[in-house]
Design a protein around this nucleic acid. Sequence first.
DNA 1: CTAGTTTGTTGAGCGCCCCAACTAATTGCA
DNA 2: TGCAATTAGTTGGGGCGCTCAACAAACTAG
Lengths: 400, 400
Amino acid sequence: MKPVREHNLGLVLRRVAEEGPRSRATLALETGLNKSTVSSLVADLIDAGLLRDSPVEERPTRVGRPPQSVELDPEGPFVLGLEINVDYLAVWATDLAGEVRHRSFVANDNRAATPKDVIALLARLAEDALEQPFAGSRHPMLATVAVPGLVDADGELAVAPNLGWTDVPVARLLNEALEDPPYCLRVENEANLGAVAELVEGAGRGLSDFVYVSGEIGIGAGVVLRGELFRGASGFAGEFGHLTIDPFGPPCGCGGRGCLERLAGQDTLLRLAGWDARMRRAGARPEWPGAMLADSARAGHSRTLAALSQVGHTLGIAIASLANLLDPEAVLLGGYLAPLSPWLTVPIYAELETRALAGRRMRCRVLPARLGGEAAVRGAVALGRRAALEEAAALPVAAR
Amino acid sequence: MKPVREHNLGLVLRRVAEEGPRSRATLALETGLNKSTVSSLVADLIDAGLLRDSPVEERPTRVGRPPQSVELDPEGPFVLGLEINVDYLAVWATDLAGEVRHRSFVANDNRAATPKDVIALLARLAEDALEQPFAGSRHPMLATVAVPGLVDADGELAVAPNLGWTDVPVARLLNEALEDPPYCLRVENEANLGAVAELVEGAGRGLSDFVYVSGEIGIGAGVVLRGELFRGASGFAGEFGHLTIDPFGPPCGCGGRGCLERLAGQDTLLRLAGWDARMRRAGARPEWPGAMLADSARAGHSRTLAALSQVGHTLGIAIASLANLLDPEAVLLGGYLAPLSPWLTVPIYAELETRALAGRRMRCRVLPARLGGEAAVRGAVALGRRAALEEAAALPVAAR
DNA sequence: CTAGTTTGTTGAGCGCCCCAACTAATTGCA
DNA sequence: TGCAATTAGTTGGGGCGCTCAACAAACTAG
């Protein structure tokens, strides 16, 4: 009920986490706290195994006693990021500093398997990560699972169209499948986690309001508002692919008509560019359509260029609606859209300028995402890491 | 830098503001603070002129010493809500408790006048309010101005299409026109303030994520996320009327095509229902179209009913896009849409069910707004009042 | 080697919250 | 009427945790 110490511990810890190793003196300067207070806070954090004295010297050849930097303790808490996607599973493990300590990727056709089997396999991969020597610590462990579908407020996977799953309690099943369940396990939509990843270490760094558009098999989005992921009232925010573009357009799998995903999704784009969409199914890598179409566009194939222009205009209409509603600082194009952004941004900007009421007064930039196919796992660890930093601050006061 | 006292003062003050008069004992129970702490906090707030002992006895015939309730001091700080609209000006003044102490409304064709003259007139109305006896207090005074246009992050009115104004520094001009400028003066979009009003005392009470759709001459919206007004990166969020419904539809005044406002705005609705839109200009009251069309619909005029159905479907498409993106708890229909909602909700829900991906899993309700044409002024005072409560907590610590 | 400079630590002081004891004001019951 | 019982509010002691100032530590410059 009176978490002032906890608050300040968190302040110092997060500062070190976000800005890197630094001395007590600079921490005092940056946080506005007193030198002696910072010393005491840092001592507690070291006792709790969250920080350690750093060999890195922060010293631009100045006079005076050399500062003693502290950094995140790599032996401290660690974090798991898991991903279930249509045709693969992935697991990453990092320490508090965000250093990736373990990484695995397994191709697996998850549409063909039952949820239970898939989650059992994922649990095996997670346990491999936990076997790593660095995982022997007594610290709490957080895990986040990225899934390609709608996750409701209780963490249950309500529906994953491209996986063919409905109402799968992923968190519960995974907890049961794990020998030693983590301190906290959460499940989150893939595009949402992609947005978090871009926010923390990608094209969204430093931004506070943006939308990450994830072009996978469908088109999803993660919405970041005021520097935080926005999930919506039931956890279903960001279904950008089902914005209506043409009310009487072709029917979409969702039951609507003329959805963005139907008019500008991967299948349509490939078809417009002259490829048979079914080629995709033939075991290609996930990054296939983006890289291939970019090659084709670079080679100047007119049909590809026309397809990209058309899809760009369609995307632009949707992005203009989004901009009218939310006025974000930027829209990030992720997934297969990222490598195609050189050809997409021009038509998108054109639509934005004619259709966004605030026109050029609002500078909504359209940028390629930076993290490619790793965005979702990266976001999973990043979210877990952020939560760990938040909660870890409560640790030293409890340990007293 | 160590606002723990301030925080607790605010906690107590806001509790009383939101939940009404109550005793120190119940405040202690509700805030989790100690009885003695609450006593001390309340004493400070009384000293600062923010609270006073209340004659109201909170006593459900129980044994023991009767509690001494405290309530917001009506002699405390006061708040102005101003509104500049197309054909009228309005000023409300309330005390901290939200009790309206002064109210004025002046019909005035603001399109025909220069911004400077309009603001001078508004300043005169504001000064009338300040002449009131209760305004003689030493307390800070906050004012908020509602305007029907885009307000940028600096509080400048960038563009007000229906007023014909562009780049009017309303805050600066009003400050100059006022003899004794307020402690803090802010300018905010009309629909945004309508959303705040509905949040505080209308259909949005208790909700944390909703969108208020304001049907005035244009269609705007105020977006409330996590219980707070969301303004967007440049302050231009909520331009719901310019969502694209039909990319190749009729041109809209904004430069786009097939905007919601063009396809389902007031003019179109009246035309579809068989009225000449120009009749509106002929000096009718602002609530004219809603009340009149509702009468006509109640009378069973088939052309009106068909028009409402068509507009409802169009609105529903836009609301489905919004719901896909933000997953709000509710959408409130305000302005002239409120009295029409009995005929609009059915087609809107129909579109929501077919077009929102999460379908009936997400319960996005569509409700009529409750505050009618007063929403914007009410929101203006409510926003000022909320800010006053926030800042007033800093007062007692400064006064020490 | 000493003066100057910057970092980190130590102990006094203090704001502010909690706790417990106490006073105040009422009801219930003998 | 009067004395428990009960609930509200106040008062003073204690302690957590922050700030401040003085000091010790570790280095550079000349």
